[in-house]
Nucleic acid binder design. Sequence first.
DNA 1: ACCATGATCCGCT
DNA 2: GCGGATCATGGTT
Length: 178
Amino acid sequence: MLGKLIVRRIGKKLIIGKIVEVEAYCKNDPASHAFRRRTNRNDVMFWEGGCLYVYFTYGMYFCANVVTGKEGSGEAVLIRAVEPLAGIEVMTKNRFSNLKSYNHQSLINLTNGPAKFCESFGISRKENGLDLLDSEIIIIEGETIPSKMVKRSSRIGIQQGLEKKWRFFVKDNTWVSK
DNA sequence: ACCATGATCCGCT
DNA sequence: GCGGATCATGGTT
């Protein structure tokens, strides 16, 4: 998924981001929402791959995954960061409703984390379950990232499953979260 | 019913 | 580096 473009259409406007940081989750994985059982909350994660699984967390944030497995398998890839390519103005409005002037830091701060990405793309409950091949949000081919530019580490913000190096990111990209 | 927790972010120190 | 915000979820009682 690294290097692919996530595109959101809002009316006539397009928001585009290049995916630069992701994490993988699956059913046999104590860090995963799919670990225990299929519930109303994680149901979309068990759908056939190609749709968007959005969840609400910490009482105020949303995060988005691309579902990647067969129906029932419970596999998904969390989008942790994207590089903004188009629709900066809309993203800025979504994220900082009263920001007057852009600067370097505000551009980075737009999408350098999973909940920041969702906020700038306007992704919340309504987008849960969307078909990424044919809806207002799609994923298309983008840049091919050379394998030597792909780095991996433990996943962020979890307690179990730290031995799995399932976080993947583009080396030296500015938008990769800290 | 109850309650601890969380795939986070932000502001302050 | 640390704690607070803020609440849906799900495991436990």
